[in-house]
């Protein structure tokens, strides 16, 4: 086992160092989400249609063919009007389509007029806290059938998966390295037991 010690140490070091900025992002955003010191909550219903109240620019587009799914239809329009981001929802009727789009630092409300071929765009910048919350929650469980429709959301999602796997590796190698430290075994075991008792009692308390 001892011959693997250096390898285990290296895995712990490199996985830990790589994921540390991700952990900082997720920890700080968890604090933001758990408290009200920052108004992070979006009124999706309100801002999805905010273009009705304020228009920053209008852009002409060629009306796409109707043989596409709603999300592909919306993506086609976004490509033509040169706007990128994650489409959070699509509201379509015979004459128009509302396409709310988000990305870190921006939320964009688009109304595409399907009779005249003109897109009305209203864009708002968001602060650093909302950026962190965006990164924490994306892609997330909602609107699963369309979520991850922006390449960077997919990229971020893969990175987060990778960092969670690294986190598991880092924790397992951490336990192994602790096992080698004979002087730390007793106190470490107590810390591990207290942690186990804390989480078990909390889960039992909150679910029963």
């Amino acid at each position: 086992m001892k011959k693997y010690h250096k390898l285990i140490k290296d895995i712990h070091l490199h996985t830990g160092l790589f994921i540390s900025p991700f952990i900082i992002i997720f920890s700080v955003s968890a604090l933001v989400l758990n408290h009200s010191f920052v108004d992070w909550q979006e009124d999706w219903q309100k801002w999805s249609f905010s273009v009705n109240n304020k228009v920053d620019k209008t852009i002409a587009f060629d009306i796409p063919t109707t043989d596409k799914s709603e999300i592909d239809y919306a993506k086609d329009i976004l490509k033509q009007i040169n706007i990128s981001g994650e489409i959070t929802n699509v509201f379509k009727d015979s004459i128009g389509m509302y396409i709310p789009v988000t990305k870190p630092g921006y939320r964009i409300s688009i109304k595409a007029d399907l009779t005249s071929g003109i897109a009305y765009v209203h864009s708002e910048r968001t602060n650093i806290w909302k950026k962190l919350v965006w990164l924490h929650k994306m892609p997330g469980p909602h609107n699963a059938n369309i979520r991850g429709n922006w390449i960077y959301t997919k990229f971020w999602s893969s990175l987060v998966d990778f960092s969670v796997i690294c986190l598991f590796f880092s924790s397992i190698t951490g336990i192994t390295l602790w096992y080698y430290l004979k002087n730390e075994r007793t106190v470490g075991l107590i810390a591990l037991l207290i942690g186990f008792i804390s989480i078990t009692s909390l889960i039992i308390g909150i679910t029963i």
């Binding site: 924790s171 951490g174 336990i175 470490g188 591990l192 207290i194 942690g195």
Partner: peptide, 11 residues
């Protein structure tokens, strides 16, 4: 070490 072990199951 201790904090890591305490938070292990939460992580």
């Amino acid at each position: 070490i201790y904090l890591g072990l305490y938070l292990l199951f939460f992580i």
